[in-house]
Each structure stands twice: as C-alpha cells, then as structure tokens.
Nucleic acid binder design. Structure first.
Lengths: 200, 200
DNA sequence: TATTTACTTGAATGATTATTCAAATTAAAA
DNA sequence: TTTTAATTTGAATAATCATTCAAGTAAATA
C-alpha cells in the first residue's frame, strides 16, 4: 500500500488561503486543484468533497486562532494587558493592505442564509472565543462584569474585522477602542506614535 | 413603442432580498429569473448584467438605510436618544430569527478579495454612515470627540451585524452596548424587561 | 390606421461547476 | 520477490453558470 504523497498540513494551509480570500461559493474545486497541485481524484479521495475540505480548513483555522489567544493571554502580565495585545494585533491586521477580515466571520456571513451547517460551526467557534475571554476576565472581575466585558470585546473584535475595509482605518480604530474599552490598560498617546511612523 | 411591463422598484426589492440572503456568488441569474418572474432577455435588456443589477440593488439599499438614519436622528429629542433608537433597531434585527446582517457589510466581506468594484462602493456607503453620525454628534461635542464616538458607534454597529449570528444574543448585546457606549442616554434596566418577555 | 420603436420571449450558447471512476502507479506486507 | 492494498491519474459526466439573439408582441407616434 502506498501512503499519501503530500503533506496534509501544507495542503490545508493553501486551501485555507483560497477559501478565506474568496469564500465558499467564490472558490472552485478547479482553483483548489490549481493551488494545491493535486489532481481532482486525489483531493476527493483524501478529503471527501468541497464542503468537507472547507470544514477541515475552517476547523484548522479556528483551532489556531483559539490557541493563539490562549497563548497571548497566558503570556501577558495581566489579563487586561493580554487583551490589549490581542486587540492590537487585530488592528494591525485591519491596517494591512491585504486585509481579509476573519475566516470565521466571513464564513458565518456567507453561509448563514443557506442553512449550511458550516455556518453553525463557525458561530460555535466564535462563541468559544467569547467564553475564553470571559473565563480569563473572571480572574479579575465578578461573573456579571466579566460577561458583559467579554461580549464588549467580541463586539469590538467583530467591528474591527469589518471596519478594516475602510480607508486608512488605523488611527480611528485605535481611538475608538480606547473610547469603547476604557477599562483596559492601554498605554498613552496613540496619535503621536502613529504619526511618527510617517516621519521616520 | 411599448413601455416596461414591470414595476422596477418591485423587481429591485425582490432582487435585493435574493442577493442580500445569498450573496453575489451564491445567487444565480436563474434564481433572479425565478424570483422576479421576468425572462432572461428582459432582465438583461433592462438591467445590463448581473453586476449592474447587484449594484442597483446595493445602491437602493444603501440609500434607504442612510435616509432612515437621518430620519431617526432628526426625529429624536436629542442626538444621543436618536443613536440609542438606531442601535436598538440593530439589536432587534440581530435578535430576529431570520437575521441576515447588513447587505453592505456582507457585500464588503464577500467581494473585497476579488478586486470587485462593488466592494469599494459598499465601503464608501458605510463611510457615509460614519460621517453622518459624526456630523450629528458635532452638535453636542467637539470635533475630536465626535470623531472617535462616531467610529465607536460604527464599531458597535458592525459588531452587532456579526454578533447577531450567535445564539440568544439579545441580552448580551444590550449589556455590551451599555458597557461600550456609556455616554449614551440608555434607559435603565434592560435585564428585567428582557426576562419579562419569557413570563408573559 | 399604419408605422415605428420599446420591450418581451425562451431556446440556445459555450464556459464553468462539482464530482466520478476505471486504469495506472506506488509502496508496505507477506 | 510477489502480493496486496493505498493512492494517483486525468479524462469524462451531467448539471448549472451568465449571457445572447432572432423572432415576436405591445403600445406610442405619425
């Protein structure tokens, strides 16, 4: 018996890029063939069909995201600092020229209307994210406050994942985050440090 | 010469429903034929092609949204009250069982990666919305504060347009809005009034 | 009423879609 | 080395895609 000629992780990475960029309906299996270099038969033999392939990519993405958040919050000197660091990364994503929102968010919006089960999957992963934030916040605040603040973080995160498509959104996003999440330990003076970038 | 047998507004309404629910790639011209009752030839004669048809639907939607916000803000006893009313409507949308986010937001996320000009159009309309909020806020606050608060409102609005896909999001959304936008004149006690619904 | 132009019709076009499968190839197991 | 099973190949399938167009119909104008 032969074993798989390809590296599954590598294939899933390429497929994730495709689906994340172009969405489920916007990506064709012929594009999958192109970006992976695999033949149609191999793809179907190893991954089942388009939906199953998408699901594996989405699951892989979600797991990596959740792990990264956990790592960030664990590595920070306080929960608040960790959350700031996380949100800062979202702002940097959104400020990049090749911004493409979040794979989970995009999937939810695209597939919720189709009754596609992939939507519920994406929604569940995002709910896990909120639960994670709440869990960490409960180390410093009571249950009620942790809950509303976790939701507030999600609202802001989702906001950034959409607002990033605006023109030059970075400065405005940073100011609005400080407006809406004033209880977080931001460091001072966003505006100046931003303008420095253009001088030096 | 004959004149159009159909009501253009009515057709655009039906087409908007289709595109809003299933997206650009997720909707086919055959579905357009089905929901409108028009024949392919008529559609192409009157609207050009799929992209032009989508654009007209999107433009119509955006205009109605902007008008509604203006009306709400003009009709309110204060800018703050008007914004609360607007956000309340977004929460109600998000709490409905047939929630489908916002047509502009969905279009942006779907088409930004394709280099499709429809994306820029959607983004521009959302920028107009932010400018509108800022303009009204400037009646009560200075420029800087109006700017950051307008962005904060957009961040929360976008957040609601995504968070609505979560399970039973209403109560959490209302609490998080009060968390993140504490400067707005909310009326007290969301929690109780929500629970009342389930008893009566 | 006759003519002209605006619009409708719907079958047809060729491209693209997801998926299949018999045959060939590979490498582990015997 | 031979056998066996896992994997690859790539052309083929049938469905669906956006779009076209010659022919037909309707109504405004002359």
């Amino acid at each position: 018996m032969a074993k798989a000629q390809f590296n599954r992780e590598e294939i899933i990475y390429k497929v994730t890029e495709l689906f994340w960029n172009h969405g489920y309906s916007g990506s064709s299996m012929q594009q999958v063939v192109k970006v992976t270099g695999l033949k149609p038969g191999s793809i179907y033999y190893s991954f089942g069909n388009k939906e199953a392939l998408f699901k594996e990519a989405l699951e892989n993405y979600a797991q990596k995201r959740l792990m990264r958040i956990r790592r960030t919050l664990d590595g920070a000197s306080s929960v608040g600092k960790g959350i700031c660091h996380h949100l800062d990364r979202l702002v940097n994503d959104a400020a990049a020229h090749d911004f493409r929102s979040c794979f989970l968010v995009k999937t939810q919006l695209e597939l919720a209307g189709e009754g596609n089960e992939l939507y519920a999957h994406a929604a569940a992963k995002l709910a896990e994210m909120e639960a994670l934030f709440q869990q960490y916040l409960e180390r410093e605040y009571d249950l009620e406050l942790s809950q509303s603040r976790a939701t507030s973080i999600m609202l802001h995160s989702f906001g950034l994942r959409v607002y990033g498509y605006q023109k030059n959104p970075e400065k405005r996003m940073r100011l609005a985050l400080r407006q809406g999440l004033p209880w977080l330990p931001w460091d001072e003076k966003v505006v100046e440090s931003k303008e420095l970038k253009f001088r030096g």
